[in-house]
Design a protein around this nucleic acid. Structure first.
Length: 549
DNA sequence: AAAAAGTTGGTGTT
DNA sequence: AACACCAACTTTTT
């Protein structure tokens, strides 16, 4: 240990924000004690056993919280961060928490005589609890703490304050309140202060995903995106080089079946881990916009996508129980049904609808799918066909997506299940025709479901309609080599619409108990009384009562 | 109170 | 490819 002289050491604690560029926490830490020969910088990342410990009971290789694809991406990002720090005369100090990450940080702060702790603010509930523990310890120990907002464009707390204490619940209102984001830190570094003595601490080399013990993962396809800041910046520049593409970008017009060359930037994993700064990305898009005559605007434009990200971060920060139906004030209370059989078929890509199954297999293998592909399967699981709770689907996405981001994932599941933000539950994605209009030949399906690779295109989206002679010829018997549909979309989607209508009607009845007429006991009695006609009667009644008022 | 808006539906016609 | 139409949601704006 170093002698306990006046502290001139700063720690930058990495969690998200795995980058050197536009990193205010790193920038502040490297300035601490600037000029002094004794200045030291400790760049730390702590491996969290609760995030990484293998879970043999999980539906696919990985830990309980993360699939192999995301773990691999994280490790690659850490390796790249270490390499970039080394080029600047520093390095990443990789520690392993015995149990609790916060405890590990607190111990190191004390043992290394740290004078200033810098880390990026994180608004997720898990992170808030963890960071409070560390901040409380540091304050009590007289350690200066700096926690800048740099993961998002804006500070969610500030937006909520500007909006009168409540988060804006529509994108439009969010954008009008937000204004222009702060400029990124554009500092070019030539070197960082050296790392100080780390005493008895075991500094780990960045492990490989094989070393973490997830069993045999040799069969796992390696997703076509490597983690790390270097790769993030390279990909961003590549995307932005095509100025016309940037200027004309409209999210809803992308092709969800494009997998060799995705229709989007596919930068979401880099934003999730902070390998790429959203402010720097925003700034670079603006530079392109200034060089062209016309460009698309939010919500559909590229900058609009970054604003969506901030929108969900802000709402998730301001709404208690954002990740649950119960106790969540903005979430419709819907009596989702329980069917382990249907859920497992969805999760494992065994629904018998090739479009749905191919997307779920891409999720499992790559940890990434196009946004509209996510819509298709989320709608299918919840309000479209299976009527299963969005929290079940959310958990699967959260574990398997490389870019899974707590705020955005939950926000989109609320959206797609028509539980919040979006309410047009009659608009249901067809598991047959939606994909077909982008990819009539079914190339996407053929790639991810090899057993269907020779199915004629007339039947590829509905293989159960293929004549048995054809099924035999292409060696794919439906019911044996590929499953029969687990639900009939025609009848299932009709039933889902009906149940959504009932749930909405009930939610409206219960929504305004202060308005005397809507809580009329007669109406309640009617809507509960006759099961078969409950939807029709309550819906009619509501129209009637609306006219009444 | 009424109209318009809302990132991305499906089907059928031209 | 563009448009009307379907059947209809909630929230915001006028």
């Amino acid at each position: 240990m170093e002698a306990a002289t006046a502290a001139t050491a700063a720690m930058v604690w990495f969690r998200k924000g795995l980058r050197v560029h536009d990193n205010p926490a790193l920038d502040a830490a490297r300035r601490y004690g600037a000029g002094a020969a004794s200045a030291r910088l400790y760049p730390v990342f702590v491996l969290d056993p609760r995030y990484l410990r293998p879970d043999p009971a999980a539906a696919s290789p990985g830990s309980a919280r993360a699939g192999v694809a995301r773990v691999r991406f994280l490790l690659e990002s850490l390796g790249d961060l270490d390499a970039r720090l080394r080029r600047l005369g520093s390095r990443l100090l990789l520690l392993r928490a015995r149990d609790d990450v916060a405890d590990t940080i607190c111990a190191a702060l004390k043992d290394w005589n740290i004078g200033k702790l810098c880390f990026e603010s994180d608004t997720e509930p898990y992170a808030l609890a963890r960071d409070k523990k560390v901040t409380d310890f540091a304050m009590a120990s007289g350690i200066e703490v700096f926690t800048p907002v740099s993961h998002t464009l804006f500070d969610p707390a500030e937006i909520i304050k500007k909006n009168g204490g409540r988060p804006p619940l529509t994108y439009r209102s969010f954008v009008s309140i937000a204004g222009e984001p702060p400029e990124p830190v554009m500092e070019e570094y030539s070197g960082f202060p050296g790392v100080g003595d780390t005493g008895e601490y075991e500094l780990l080399p960045v492990p490989t995903v094989d070393e973490l013990g997830y069993g045999d993962i040799s069969q796992e396809e390696i997703p076509p995106c490597r983690g790390g800041e270097t790769e993030a910046l390279r990909r961003m520049k590549e995307s932005l080089q095509n100025k016309e593409w940037v200027a004309k970008f409209e999210k809803p017009k992308g092709d969800p079946s494009a997998f060799l060359k995705p229709a989007t930037t596919a930068l979401s994993p880099y934003l999730k881990f902070g390998c790429l700064s959203s402010r720097y990305f925003y700034h670079c898009i603006q530079v392109v916009y200034k060089s062209v005559k016309n460009h698309t605007k939010p919500p559909v434009s590229l900058t609009g996508q970054l604003l969506w990200r901030d929108f969900f971060y802000t709402v998730s920060y301001g709404i208690p129980n954002f990740d649950r139906m119960k106790g969540n004030k903005i979430c419709k209370q819907i009596p989702w049904s329980e069917s382990e059989e249907l859920f497992v078929a969805w999760r494992d890509g065994q629904t018998g609808y090739p479009w749905i199954d191919a997307i779920m297999i891409q999720l499992r293998k790559w940890g990434w799918m196009h946004h509209l592909a996510r819509h298709s399967v989320a709608c299918f699981l919840t309000r479209g066909d299976m009527f299963i709770h969005w929290e079940k689907g959310r958990d699967v996405f959260e574990r398997l997506l490389i870019d899974s981001d707590w705020a955005i994932n939950n926000g989109n599941w609320l959206w797609l299940s028509c539980s919040s933000f979006f309410y047009q539950y009659h608009r249901i994605y067809s598991p047959i025709t939606f994909g077909k209009k982008y990819d009539p030949n079914g190339n996407y399906i053929r790639h991810f479901i090899p057993v269907l690779k020779d199915m004629p295109k007339e039947y590829i989206y509905e293989p159960w309609t293929a004549p048995l002679s054809i099924q035999k010829k292409v060696k794919c018997i439906v019911g044996k080599d590929y499953p029969k549909p687990v639900v009939d979309h025609e009848t299932a989607s009709k039933d889902c619409r009906k149940r959504m209508g009932e749930a909405y009607a009930l939610s409206r009845l219960g929504a305004n108990p202060t308005k005397g007429k809507t809580s009329n006991p007669l109406r309640r009695k009617t809507s509960h009384g006759d099961k078969a006609t409950s939807e029709a009667s309550s819906a009619k009644l509501l129209k009637w009562s609306n006219q009444d008022e």
